[in-house]
């Protein structure tokens, strides 16, 4: 790994997770406030995160196994916010029903 590739890979990985977090945050706030615009901005963050993941897979000198892990993680970042949100809604509605 060249020095430049090392720094580029590290920064791409950080940016990937940060964009994934941006998606999760904007998606949640958008759902919370019923604002589709925020959800769309969240979707843009997700596309950016997937773009960073694609860049890591295509342009960095990481071994194949690590690139597969990045791909699987990208799927995780896409799936977790809506799944957790749905689970929370079920959990809280169950709690309200019990009360």
């Amino acid at each position: 790994m060249t020095p430049t590739a090392f720094v580029a890979t590290a920064l791409l990985m950080g940016a990937f997770v940060l964009a994934g977090g941006g998606y999760g945050s904007l998606y949640s706030v958008g759902r919370l406030q019923g604002r589709p615009r925020l959800i769309r901005m969240g979707a843009v963050c997700l596309v950016v995160a997937l773009g960073f993941a694609a860049a890591i897979v295509v342009a960095t000198p990481l071994a194949v196994g690590w690139k597969i892990l990045i791909g699987v993680s990208a799927a995780g970042y896409a799936a977790i916010p809506p799944l957790v949100w749905r689970y929370l809604e079920q959990l809280h509605s169950g709690g309200r029903a019990m009360r």
């Binding site: 999760g24 945050s25 706030v29 993680s73 929370l88």
Partner: peptide
């Protein structure tokens, strides 16, 4: 490397949970 790379995923779930609770 493998297990550490998975660690941010549950933290993302916590962010969603925090927003939901707020």
């Amino acid at each position: 490397g493998f297990f550490s790379a998975l660690e941010p995923l549950p933290l993302l779930g916590m962010v969603v949970h925090a927003v939901y609770d707020a």
